[in-house]
């Protein structure tokens, strides 16, 4: 049974129920929810709220755990906010086996360090890649497209573009 003291905030977003927990309690809360019947971790991901004006965010990175109860078909999203360099949170890969690769992907893409993960390595990018591509301050990359505004700037002053 999840205790109310763990829950910082709760609400419904576009029909999806969610709760927020403090990042240091995330593992305890998920463990309690697993005991409540939320057996399946559908996915785990992160959202980077760098320069997000839509509301006042407690921290830059928001970790999301989408849980599902296969019997009652209820879903619950657990949010935890983390900051720091590197941001850290406890791993849940032993509670929910699918989290293993999800956590590796989140480490690869956002640089979140999951304490206690058995093999926290890059999963999608090459092992020697520098940076975490899905962070908002990481450029999209690619090449300048011809006839676009960027190309115009690059053509007139390539050293500045």
């Amino acid at each position: 049974m999840i205790v109310d003291s763990l829950i910082v905030d709760r609400g419904v977003s576009a029909g999806d129920a969610w709760i927020t927990v403090a990042s240091e309690n995330a593992r305890d809360a998920l463990s309690a929810l697993k005991g409540d019947g939320y057996q399946l971790l559908v996915f785990l991901t992160c959202v980077d709220h760098l320069a997000d004006q839509s509301r006042d965010w407690p921290a830059r990175y928001e970790l999301l755990y989408q849980l599902r109860n296969l019997e009652t078909r209820e879903q619950l999203r657990v949010r935890a906010f983390v900051d720091g360099d590197p941001p850290r949170i406890d791993s849940v890969s032993d509670l929910f086996p699918p989290a293993n690769w999800d956590e590796r992907e989140t480490y690869d893409m956002f640089g979140i360090v999951f304490t206690g993960h058995p093999d926290l390595t890059r999963i999608l990018m090459p092992d020697d890649w520098v940076g975490h591509p899905l962070r908002r301050d990481y450029p999209v990359g690619g090449e300048v497209v011809e006839f676009s505004e960027e190309h115009e700037a690059w053509r007139t002053a390539p050293e500045k573009a």
Partner: peptide, 17 residues
């Protein structure tokens, strides 16, 4: 860009394959 390669972090992050 912080890629989390600090002193204490390297022990948590595996060494590839």
């Amino acid at each position: 860009m912080a890629d989390g390669a600090g002193e204490s972090v390297s022990s948590e992050i595996g060494q590839g394959i």
